[in-house]
Design a protein around this nucleic acid. Structure first.
Lengths: 207, 207
DNA sequence: AAGACAATACCAACCAGTCGGTATGTCAAT
DNA sequence: ATTGACATACCGACTGGTTGGTATTGTCTT
């Protein structure tokens, strides 16, 4: 009788408020940026009240840090689990990684924007905590390809090129591509950035 | 007697309010982002009242559009006037352009961030007018190198590579480098992004 | 019973934008 | 060379609504 069902659809199950807030933040921050997203908006989107918000996060900035940390884990798990890691040749794994990033670009624009890259642009000078979380996130993202790059460079050294720096260039191509895609309102420039990255790699490794 | 001097230092000369507001916006928006910069803050920084603000701009968004358009003109004039255009060989001009961008990176971080690239990240989905201004700004920036690229490609064609797309990759390297620099709070990753771009160019053109 | 979790009401500060008014400059007719 | 009509540039108090954050109370789970 107690209309438990409508209650359940209307209100999220207890204990999920934190996760729901982070999910809502991921959506809204990608579309509108961090500063332009208000706490009230976040609560409404998550189906949660303000009391719940400030129970789980000390401040809006706290939510921002948690959002980026969650992003680091989520994307990290996704890349780690992906079959692109299976290829025997490290160079093939790099090409497969780029191909994987290409397929991600077929999603709608707000859904392939990088949470860390977007927010750090806004807050790098106003929130040290969020900047540090973003730095860690981008470094972690570069870490996924660095291992493959080290193996590839061991088999085919390139003078003046380190795995560390080349891994960062992957991030540069991805982040820069996203900016151009946003400006053009079209994923194509981001896809072309990956094409150039792949061509660069092939030239470096003589493939 | 009439303390005309203190009057002059206390208040900007008539007619300069618009330019002062744009200059203040360039500073503040680079450091804090567009959404986090309030109109009051802008007015205070420009030494101007709110009445003056809304006399010159219909809205905060209007100031945003004017800011990006001004940025397009300013940077365009700067690159056009620079001696890097002097080299006879188009390839040398491209290398000189990259070198010019490298020297820009010796400034403090907020001063080498691209106004168009930063703001479009925030407002690409919430302000069509600003996104369009940013698109135009980035396209204009790519246009500066496209001419040199066309000449270089005419002398040394590279299959599958157009001047248009390669010019955009210059923007990708610059914008992506800025994001990493912000995250690391250090210009070095941006400089390395230019190094990789230069190496890519040399490989493409066999230099 | 006790603590974790969440709902509601509330607050001072701040937000973008408005509006009636004034200062300054322009130009044509006197 | 004055005058006066008009436009531009600017001023700053004000408004309705929103902001991030708090205080208090209630309700689940163990």
């Amino acid at each position: 009788m107690k209309d438990g069902q409508s209650q359940a659809t209307r209100r999220a199950p207890r204990g999920s408020a934190r996760a729901r807030l982070i999910a809502a933040a991921r959506d809204l921050v990608r579309r509108k940026g961090f500063a332009a997203t208000s706490v009230d908006e976040l609560c409404a989107a998550a189906g949660v009240t303000k009391g719940a918000f400030f129970h789980h996060f000390a401040s809006k900035e706290g939510l921002g840090v948690a959002l980026i940390e969650d992003w680091t884990e989520t994307t990290g798990a996704m890349f780690a689990a992906h079959p692109y890691n299976a290829a025997a040749d490290p160079f093939d794994r790099l090409i497969a990684y780029i191909e994987l990033r290409r397929t991600l670009l077929s999603m709608p624009l707000p859904e392939f924007t990088c949470v860390a890259g977007t927010t750090v642009q806004e807050v790098f000078d106003t929130s040290a905590a969020m900047r540090e979380a973003a730095r860690n996130s981008l470094a972690s993202g570069a870490g996924h390809v660095r291992a493959h790059l080290e193996a590839a460079l061991a088999a085919h050294p390139v003078p003046g090129v380190t795995a560390e720096s080349l891994a960062r260039q992957f991030q540069v191509a991805v982040q820069g591509g996203i900016i151009l895609a946003k400006a053009e309102n079209d994923a194509r420039p981001a896809r072309e950035a990956l094409d150039h990255l792949e061509r660069y790699l092939r030239l470096l490794f003589g493939r």
